[in-house]
Design a protein around this nucleic acid. Structure first.
Lengths: 107, 107
DNA sequence: TGATCATATAAGCCAGTGGTGATACGTTCT
DNA sequence: AGAACGTATCACCACTGGCTTATATGATCA
């Protein structure tokens, strides 16, 4: 399953956005996501499972809490899919275009 | 509908990859995609419709042919979603948060 | 130990999506 | 004009995926 297949869901994308700011216990994620999307705790938990299983997050136990964090590897893989197309919107003419554009757009 | 929702389909991603090399008539796209995925002409045509409707491609008529080409705008928009996460995999001396997160996980 | 908390799983329902074959539409050729 | 071509649309069907409620699991607290 391609990483972009996993990201083709607004709830999962939002979970990752929330986690981008830092690790969080499942409960905190549920509070945010369930409120924003109007879905239940199990629904969020099932999305967390998909993200776990596909490697987008890591989890560690802390008592009865499960602390989730972003694992960037699959995100990077998904982002690399766009490499083929960056030439369409990159004005750089030098060979380093791709490298420079990625992650250095603020330079 | 978010651009990444459209890209959450392997057939549509492949169509865009094929078009990345240059514009093509629908028939040529059908030949490639139908063969690769074992699907019919209408199936491919319906994916082309989705890509058209969501702005990923432009079309122009050429006699009885329809010439498709990549429109980069939605692709760029989709790619921008990853901006939030690029700090995770780009080495920057000032990205302290990222470094700390990585260190914690690796240790 | 029993109650409570935090989270995950189970089972089932339902809507949406992507597939199919048939067909319509517009263009070109003879 | 009619036939053939290239492509899109239609109507329908099956499957998947995300949701729900109910419940299980494991950890902590009194």
């Amino acid at each position: 399953m391609h990483a972009l297949d996993i990201l083709g869901d607004p709830v999962r994308r939002r979970i990752l956005e929330v986690l981008a700011a830092g690790e969080l216990p499942a409960g905190a994620i549920v509070d945010t996501i369930a409120a924003e999307f109007g879905i239940s705790q199990p629904a969020v938990s099932q999305h967390l499972r998909v993200l776990r299983d596909s490697g987008f997050t890591t989890v560690r136990a802390d008592g009865r809490r499960r602390i989730y964090a972003v694992d960037p590897a699959p995100l990077r893989e998904a982002d690399e899919w766009f490499d083929t197309f960056r030439g369409f919107w990159t004005q750089r003419l030098d060979a380093l275009g791709t490298e420079l554009t990625r992650g250095r757009r603020d330079v």
